[in-house]
Simulated assay, not measured.
Amino acid sequence: MSGLEWGTASDQRFNVNLSILFTELPLLERPSAAAAVGFTAVELWWPWVDSPTPERSALDALKKAIEDAGVQLTGLNFYAGRLPGPDRGALSIPGEESEKFRANIDVAADFAESLGCKALNALYGNRVEGVDPAEQDALALENLVLAARTANTIGAILLIEALNQPESPLYPLVSAPAAVEIVDKVNEATGLGNARFLMDLYHLSMNREDLPSVIERYASKTGHVQIADNPGRGAPGTGSLPLEDLLGRLGKAGYEGWVGLEYKPGDGPSAAAFDWLPATARAAH
């Protein structure tokens, strides 16, 4: 896959996930590193894995780093536990983790609003041994409704993501239909319509889903797209996924949102992991 092909055939707006790329650098240096290779938009998992409510000084420092770099924050996760790590979200886990998620809702929304970020991602959480799945699902819906209502107050959407079964065996949303079902339930409960599907093409491919069919069925309910190649979760062109074709299908289906680059950079610095995308295609347009 050549850079020329991507530069001429795709019209997507790309952002860089600073929680998986540029991780060889301290958090506060990553926004400027993304800007240095031509990107104008970034996204983040919740950066403070041990705290849903970090000190104001930490929030202000990250805000300043993003503003000083001249990049736009376009997506942010709510608190999701140890990520990367064994956790896959907190909102469906009874007890302390669910309480942490609730404590984080306003903090994350306020931070997003301060930077003009309009998309907040809420990872569902793993199944817990000894807890009735129905109890977890009821708690999840309650917390997702709270998150959706708060997101709506800042003009943002709430994203709900499907992960993949091999890498996340305890996560219940391991198909596009499962995630979209939750999206629909949240929208029905709130009446706001701001819950949307996060379509991660890598995760869906790991689940062996028919990606053209997923795009055809769910593009209209999709609020964000993320990509990595498969196998390996590397940059486009390192595996066998026809990512350019799939993004073209998304565009034809009416998707005009961001495409998050959420892949492993491989050996060497992250700056070398973007050779597949010409510099002229990295800046949002």
Rank of each mutant, 00 (worst) to 15 (best):
V37I: 03
P94E: 13
E113A: 15
V225H: 00
L204Q: 04
L247V: 00
R196Y: 04
S10E: 09
G155I: 01
A219L: 09
A189R: 01
V131Q: 02
E181C: 10
L277M: 02
V174M: 06
D267P: 12
L62N: 15
F14C: 08
Y202E: 10
I20D: 03
R30N: 06
D210F: 12
R13D: 01
E262S: 05
E262P: 01
D275K: 13
S51R: 04
S10N: 12
M199V: 03
A281G: 14
N77F: 13
T40A: 10
D110K: 03
A134Y: 07
L173D: 06
L123W: 14
V145K: 04
V259I: 01
D50R: 11
W276D: 02
R30H: 09
N194W: 05
A271P: 01
G237C: 12
E129M: 03
Y171V: 03
T190V: 00
D184H: 10
P278E: 02
E161T: 11
L243H: 07
T280A: 15
L18H: 11
G70K: 11
P231F: 12
D200S: 05
D106H: 01
L277H: 02
D200N: 02
A35K: 04
L18F: 13
A219G: 05
T8D: 06
G155Q: 00
A151V: 00
